[in-house]
Amino acid sequence: MSVEAREKRQPWILLSPALVAVTLLLFVPLAFIVVYSFWLRTATGADQTGFFLDNWNEALSDPFYRDILISTLRIAAITTLVCAVMGYPAAYFIARSKGNKALLLLMLMLPFWISYIIRTMSWINILGVSGAVNWALIEIGLINEPLQMLYNETTVILGLVHFLLPFMILNVYVALESIDISLEDAACSLGSTRWQSFLEVTLPLSLPGLAAGGLLCFVLSAGTYITPLVLGGPTDAMFANLVFEAIITQLNWPLGSALSLMLLAVLGTLVLTYNHFLGMGQLMKGLG
């Protein structure tokens, strides 16, 4: 075999374990889900095999699913916006700090050492009727009766921001780190103020990082079901809760499959749009 042919094969050999894993763990199960979405659930809970479009008809034409999907996308958009507003200054601070960057990044990663569910549930002890905030407000005399702060859409968004903020900060940080700091100085030396140099130079150059962080936050929050389950009220369900309910509570795997593919299609379109305009390279940088 020629050296050229061997060099051509080498990347594929190196990639093959990952490709096998992705095929077996992602594409094959996905194919099963596609097949399932055309089956039907019988009255006993067993599945009826075949090719039926009933689940797709229901998923695409029923306003119930459309409304929850829109509500999910709205919550995901608000979460992403809050993460961007809160995350950018934090990332900027870390990127521009001198000497203690490693410590700050370590602190940023610390929450990942604790389970996401535990982190979500911790808000119950903070915002609950007998939680830390109510206790403090009563102690300092600001209120007499505890405030009802939990189990609404705001607490769902709060829980999501808590979970996703580090993803945003990391992506923006990576983008800011790659900007040559002398560009800001150059802008200042040409007469712009610090604020102008930030707006005209730094912010535009860091936008790919912001977009990558935004994409991650949006996709992850739109697909969550734990946060609304733990911190939401009776009507704060998101689309993934519908998938969970169809599959687990109603034992309707075919409908659950159709719903999960619908969510995948919406989020997939978003990722493809991002890739078309910005490319996936920035996202990979942010993921380390």
Binding site: F64, I68, P234, L242, E245, T249, Q250, N252
Partner: peptide
Amino acid sequence: EQEWSKKFGRIQKGY
């Protein structure tokens, strides 16, 4: 079971 569990799922979410 099939009809009611589904209907309750909807009502539970505000419908």
